[in-house]
Design a protein around this nucleic acid. Structure first.
Lengths: 292, 292
DNA sequence: AAAAGCCTAAACAAACTATTGACAAACCGC
DNA sequence: GCGGTTTGTCAATAGTTTGTTTAGGCTTTT
């Protein structure tokens, strides 16, 4: 973001008022940076700068009617592991504001793919791990995963939809409720122009094949995060394989197949890989092959 | 719709009179947009623009002579039900593109609160109803509710966060997985400057009180959508009531308490009302009272 | 002290909008 | 079919918004 633009905004709208050094140099606060990142988001969504600023001021005014002001400041984090650590700490502290700051900064610096795979996934793994060892409460784990989900879904909602790309159906196995990894795949696929139909948690096996016949997707991917969900994946794979006419390809994945690789052989379908990136590559290979 | 056409209509018929910015740019109000959509509908039905405008002006004149508010209301409601119907159809068809179009239009005309309460909630109720009656597949219901959830979460993510407002904890009862209504409340509270900690689906009762002691929120709200979840709500309410020191207020709600109002008396806490708007008013009352 | 960077102020350029007038296709009554 | 009207679109010119550049001076760094 060019410095001249910032100064123009300050001069023309007065919305940004950084403090100055003795020499008169601008010192932007964390709050200023947060505003700038937010403004950039609105502009990317098609607003003009004047509209975005008007909306910000409107929201500020509305929020102020309810609450008195306060002050907060943190330092800039430039290193991935720093970011991971402070993000995990903020989430375990239920501090959404701080988490937002950290993530917004990280998105601006590292881009969404890096942030998704190298920050969001590890942080959630870390929090999940602490939870399993009894060192983090269930409430904290819930809060963190809902927070992350919201962030990913916002990215998905902000992206452009395509209806002419290959149709890919995504869902969690029956009785499987962990959708974070699947949402990342959704995000990546969507950004690459696939037409994703997202079915979410706990997709029941009944009626599933009928619906797939009606929808006739190119690929169905089901995720399982626990060993108990694997039989459901197998059932769905077999049901798809038993379809008559043109069947979709069947892919599967999820942490159940990473912790116990032997399970991969039990499912009649294509294992999509251990992480979202691998899955992405496999989707494109699989669909290229099918088209032949 | 080409801009030149709009200007031609304004110049030739004077029917559209958007206000202007200082720079002279046109600012179309929601009313203008509603008129345009109505006109477009007439034109698609084969009317010419002059006929459509004459009809509009005739209806306006007649409405003014009788009871203006009633007439205006039915007009809007008719439009809303159109939107609801086409949105439900698009979702049952897995057509995310079309649903996006419809919703974007609706947001522009009606604003996010009206859309949330008068479109999203009824459409989901309608789809859920069809699903219960076996007229819609589980996959379609999953797709629709994930879609809606994504939209609401995107709105939440786009809003400005505040850390200095009153802290409100939101969660679904243990083993309750329906979070759409709760997300709406989250959205509304956030826009009004509350600091919301969202715990999502299936909040377990264990450790919950410890976590609340650490977080010391002003209000805890738990939602239950089925009768089976109500005992969980009661357990949490009692646990909160048994806390020592400063306890948060405890509120509850959800469709379980709407279909069977007798259940409300079984929970030791404040019933927050039947819909998101009522909940909002109750939150603000409750917190104002507590502050005294 | 020289180089590099930031400051202010003003100007510039690209993209967008407004106004007016014109044009061609569709439509109407005859 | 034919003149006249309606209607969507376009072009030319002027004004607005907004990001970027320029010019001259001050601050910081090396």
């Amino acid at each position: 973001m060019p410095a001249a633009t910032l100064r123009a905004w300050e001069r023309r709208y007065g919305a940004l008022a950084p403090s100055r050094t003795e020499g008169g140099y601008r010192l932007y606060s964390e709050r200023d940076i947060m505003l700038l990142i937010w403004l950039k988001g609105r502009i990317n969504e098609g607003m003009t700068i004047s509209q975005a600023l008007a909306l910000w001021q409107y929201q500020e005014r509305q929020a102020r009617e309810q609450t008195p002001p306060a002050e907060a400041n943190t330092e800039i984090r430039a290193d991935l592991s720093d970011v991971r650590q402070s993000l995990a700490a903020a989430l375990l502290d239920f501090d959404e504001c701080k988490a937002d700051q950290i993530l917004a900064e990280a998105f601006a610096i590292f881009g969404f793919e890096t942030v998704s795979e190298r920050i969001i996934v590890p942080v959630m793994a870390h929090i999940g791990d602490r939870w399993h060892r009894g060192k983090a409460s269930t409430a904290a784990e819930h809060f963190a995963s809902n927070y992350m989900r919201r962030k990913i879904e916002a990215l998905i909602a902000a992206g452009a939809r395509r209806q002419d790309g290959p149709v890919v159906v995504l869902g969690c196995a029956p009785n499987d409720w962990h959708e974070l990894g699947l949402l990342l795949i959704y995000l990546f696929l969507q950004r690459r122009g696939y037409n994703v139909v997202y079915l979410g948690q706990n997709v029941p096996a009944e009626q599933f094949v009928d619906e797939m016949r009606r929808l006739s997707p190119d690929l169905v991917m089901i995720s399982a995060t626990t060993e108990e969900s694997v039989p459901g994946v197998i059932a769905m794979a077999e049901a798809i394989a038993a379809m008559d006419g043109t069947k979709p390809a069947f892919g599967f994945g999820g942490s159940a197949f990473n912790t116990n690789p032997a399970l991969r052989a039990t499912v009649p379908g294509v294992f999509m890989g251990e992480d979202a990136h691998a899955a992405l590559a496999n989707v494109s290979n699989l669909l290229a092959e099918r088209r032949k």
